[in-house]
Amino acid sequence: MIRVALFIPCFVDQLAPTIGQAAVRVLERAGCTVEFPEAQTCCGQPAFSTGHWREARALAERFVRVFAAAEAVVCPSGSCAATARRAFALLDDGDAAWRRDAAALAPRVFEFSEFLVRRLRLTDVGAFFPHRVAYHDACHLLRELGVRDEPRQLLREVRGLELVEMEEPEECCGFGGAFAVALPAISAALGRRKAANVERAQAEFVTTGDPSCLLHIGGVLARQRARARAIHLAEILAAERRPGAAPARP
């Protein structure tokens, strides 16, 4: 049995806890022992990507310290997992000891879908979700972690789920962290384009493994009063057929 140390990104912790709860349910159902080290806070991505590397380094050090002994660190966010796995090493300032610590942790950090499919070799997690779903390739999952097929493999095994491909699935949704509020007109134009592609695919839900994209795409869909909604992959995989109940209606 694998012991999983769960990393819950700060804004999932505070604003979208159901994503973390769903990840716990799926991992436990898959037979993992899930731990949540409470000393964790933020991986430092906002500081790193806005150019505040000193602050990012301090948070990265905390992350490495908290998870140093973990067998596997699993995170339901592609961009946070990518920060820990790929960006930490850049914050080295010529410090070899840090580079070693960051490199030692990196291969044990997994994004949620990647952990299920690559590490546990699991694609059927016993989920039931009778809806038409489009998968959005979140940029950091796709390009930093090379995760393209894993989420789709998981979705294909979900009972009742119809997986549809929208147009331009690999085009950025326009969130981009601080970019979303620093240049809101450009960010929103990209969000509207993504939302239009979801709608054209006649999907009821758009999903991915990055909560920040979902906050953005879901926010655009809601503002446009669109039929489609955004949902995290973990929440789909956590959905089950309740014995004797009508089909799940989220």
């Binding site: 505070q14 604003l15 806890p17 926010g219 809601a222």
Partner: peptide
């Protein structure tokens, strides 16, 4: 800057770590 084009969902009463505890 956020809400002009995007809705913001209602914040949860309980954080993940409160739920975990």
């Amino acid at each position: 800057p956020w809400t002009r084009a995007r809705a913001l969902p209602a914040p949860p009463a309980e954080s993940f770590r409160e739920w975990w505890r």
